[in-house]
């Protein structure tokens, strides 16, 4: 998956319901996004720990991205809700093409612990498109044995 802008056809047709939120890339709006994450997980019958983990993971991802977002840009967060898991794509436009999300922080380690899968996607932009950074994470509805 190289495009965070739109779900691939497979995802559109496999029964995932999609919720997309776009806000100003501001820390003041992250509480709203994590409230939506929590609500979606509760409605999808996630267990209480998994709801808490998803809420924290989404918060962490969004806070990380808001940090590198270009001024006055947007934060877009897409939730793909499946029967057993929720996939989240969060993305911002960045000030510079070489803006990076640092993955050697305590916050990133916590994010890796909270989510079942997590990855970063940098796109340098060009052809009039602004550079973007995205974080994709996956959370299952209950704790599988580790």
């Amino acid at each position: 998956m190289t495009d965070l802008d739109s779900p691939s056809p497979a995802e559109t047709f496999d029964g995932a319901s999609t919720v997309e939120i776009r806000t100003s890339a501001s820390a003041a709006l992250i509480p709203t996004i994590r409230a939506v994450a929590s609500d979606l997980a509760a409605r999808a019958d996630f267990d209480l720990d998994a709801i808490s983990d998803l809420r924290m993971a989404v918060d962490e991802a969004c806070a990380t991205l808001v940090d590198v977002a270009a001024p006055t840009s947007s934060l877009r967060c897409t939730f793909l809700v499946r029967p057993e898991r929720i996939e989240v794509h969060a993305q911002v436009e960045t000030k510079h093409a070489d803006a990076v999300v640092s993955t050697d922080t305590f916050g990133w380690r916590v994010l890796q612990t909270l989510a079942d899968e997590v990855s970063v996607l940098h796109r340098p932009g060009g052809d009039g498109a602004a550079p973007t950074v995205g974080i994709r994470l996956d959370k299952r509805s209950g704790d599988a044995p580790r």
């Binding site: 509480p31 994590r34 809420r55 924290m56 918060d59 962490e60 806070a63 305590f106 916050g107 916590v110 994010l111």
Partner: peptide
């Protein structure tokens, strides 16, 4: 009601 990694640190 919410504790992020920044607060935990």
């Amino acid at each position: 009601r919410f504790l992020a990694s920044s607060g935990l640190a």
